[in-house]
Structure formats: C-alpha cells, structure tokens
C-alpha cells in the first residue's frame, strides 16, 4: 500500500474514534492498535482464568451449601468471562492456543492480585468485595471501549460481576457481625488484600507507558490513578459501615478535594510480583500448565469422536 493511503486510512480511523464510532473486526486499524488490544484483551482473559484458582481453593471447604453453590457459580462465571475474552482476542487475529501458551511460558501477564494466597474463608469475602470491586471499576468504562467485540464482552461481564462483589461483601458483613474470632478473620483478610487491590489499577499515571496512547484510541477512558481514587472513595465507607479498618494510617477524608487521601503504595512489591516473584506465581502457572497437559487426551478424543461421526454421516 502507498504511503499516502496509509496516512488517509489512519486519519479516517482516528476520525471514527473521535466520533465514538466503534471499530469492528474487519475494519482497517493501525497495527499498534491491534497489538495493544490483543495484549490487553488476552491479559484480561488470562486474569479471569487464573482468577479461578484462589477461589477454587475454597469450594470444597465453603461453610455451608448456600455459600458453596454461590462460590461455584462465581468461579464458573470467571471461566465464562475468560472465554468471552479469548473469543474477542480471536477477532483480532490472535490464535487461541498460542495465546494460552504465552500465558504458560510467562510471555503474557495476568493480574498480579491472583498471585496472593487465600489462606482463610474470609479471603473469599475480601476477594469478592475488593478484587471484584476493583475489577468492576476498571471494566465499567471498558464497556465504552472503541473496539466493538471487547466492549460487548465487557457489557456481559459487568452484568455478571455485580453479584460477585455483593456476595463477597455479604461474606465480610456476616463475619464482621459474628464472633470476635470471625471479625478478626475478616479484618485480617482486609489487611492482606487492601494494598494488592489498590495495585490492581497499575502503576501511577506518570509511570504508565501505555495510558496516553490508549486514551487517544479510547481503549481506556480513565487513567490508573483516577480509577484507583474512585475505588478508594467508594470502598472506604463500606469498610466503615461493617466496622472494619482499612489498613492505611495515612487514609483520611480531604474536605477540600472531596476525596480520600491515602498512603503510598509499595511499588517495589508490585514490580516484584509482576516479575514473577509473588507468593503464588509459580504455583498458578504450574496449575494452568498441568490443566492443559492433563486435558490433552480429552481434547484429542473429542476430535476423534467428531471425525468419526462426520464420516458416518457422510457415508
């Protein structure tokens, strides 16, 4: 293609974006837009899939049948969300199996929050309330993302996630109103998950290398720091309401700004976990890899069965 043509295509593309016209799979798009989306959507898909593991840990030990049914439904939703997202990534030309292999080889990342262990039942509450709460904060603006299939997947995901957060908050509320031991368990879970939840929004704006371009392309609608502030403002009163204490000595309401001021995030910890040195990184990837390897014969058998039936139909 001629230089001039690409310039024209690029101009038309940006005009569509500026006018809030969605980009669909077969439309022309700049290579970097495609690459950025594939990276973001596949990371998002991986996060949903790896996100099943910390909660899967408690399904067999849920305190009663209601909690168990709810947790199962939630984990099944995460699997579904992963699948919506992998199929959205495929509309951009990403190959599903390669995408998954990139996760297993460490080339692709997923949300660092899932590299923390779930050591008590209260962690199911903290994850639903805080981790899904933070995810919703991130995902609601993505429903207006400029890429059609991603935006549509997000609409489905957001509809389903709201139950996730509520069931988590319900667990926390129940524990916080229970025996002193139960309340201590809830507080301990909040202590461990608060800071990693704030890290879910990614580095500070000044350090975030993708934000500016992603905002110009309307893949992102808010910066990391804006979303983090929205999360803190929404969540702190919820903690207060159930009598739990947010583990941040610098946290205080700022009358002037109308927002909460909060303490400095431990970015060294964040980067260590991103690099693979969190408490569960290795365990999570090993589990996913084993799942793929151990399921290979099932996928193979399904192919053989499909082939046999096709032959029988043809004859």
């Amino acid at each position: 293609m001629k230089e001039l043509d690409i310039a024209t295509l690029q101009k038309r593309f940006q005009e569509k974006i500026d006018n809030d016209i969605k980009i669909e799979p077969r439309d022309w798009m700049p290579d970097d837009y495609r690459k950025t989306l594939i990276r973001q959507i596949s990371q998002h898909a991986h996060s949903e899939v790896v996100g099943m593991l910390p909660e899967g840990n408690w399904i067999t030990r849920a305190p009663n049948l209601r909690r168990k049914a709810v947790l199962l439904a939630k984990v099944q939703d995460e699997a579904g969300h992963g699948l919506y997202l992998y199929s959205a990534a495929e509309t951009l030309g990403a190959d599903r199996e390669e995408t998954i292999d990139d996760l297993h080889s460490g080339v692709a990342k997923y949300s660092s929050i899932f590299n923390y262990p779930t050591v008590s039942w209260a962690d199911m509450g903290a994850i639903g309330w805080l981790v899904d709460g933070a995810a919703i904060m991130n995902q609601v603006p993505l429903c207006r993302c400029s890429y059609g299939p991603y935006a549509r997947a997000m609409v489905r995901v957001c509809k389903e996630e709201s139950f996730h957060q509520r069931q988590g908050f319900e667990i926390m509320t129940t524990l916080a109103n229970g025996s002193p031991e139960q309340k201590a368990m809830a507080q301990d879970a909040l202590n461990r998950f608060w800071w990693p939840s704030l890290m879910m929004f990614g580095p500070n704006d000044a350090e975030s290398k993708h934000t500016e371009q992603s905002m110009r392309w309307k893949i992102k609608r808010h910066t990391n720091d804006e979303l983090r502030q929205m999360f803190v403002d929404a969540t702190v009163p919820q903690a207060e309401l159930i009598g739990l204490t947010v583990p941040d000595k610098d946290l205080k309401w700022n009358e002037e700004t109308g927002h909460y001021d909060f303490g400095e995030i431990n970015w060294d910890e964040f980067w260590e976990v991103v690099k693979g040195n969190g408490p569960c990184n290795k365990d999570r990837i090993d589990t996913r890899r084993k799942a793929k390897e151990n399921g290979a014969w099932v996928r193979e058998a399904a192919n053989a069965y499909a082939e046999k039936r096709n032959k029988r139909k043809a004859s």
Binding site: L83, S87, E90, A153, A306
Partner: peptide, 11 residues
C-alpha cells in the same frame, strides 16, 4: 452473541 471453540456442532 460471540464465538467459542468446540470439536463439533453438538459440543
């Protein structure tokens, strides 16, 4: 509504 992978139409 979207797409998915499966070995055959029934699946």
């Amino acid at each position: 509504v979207g797409s998915l992978r499966a070995a055959d139409a029934d699946m």
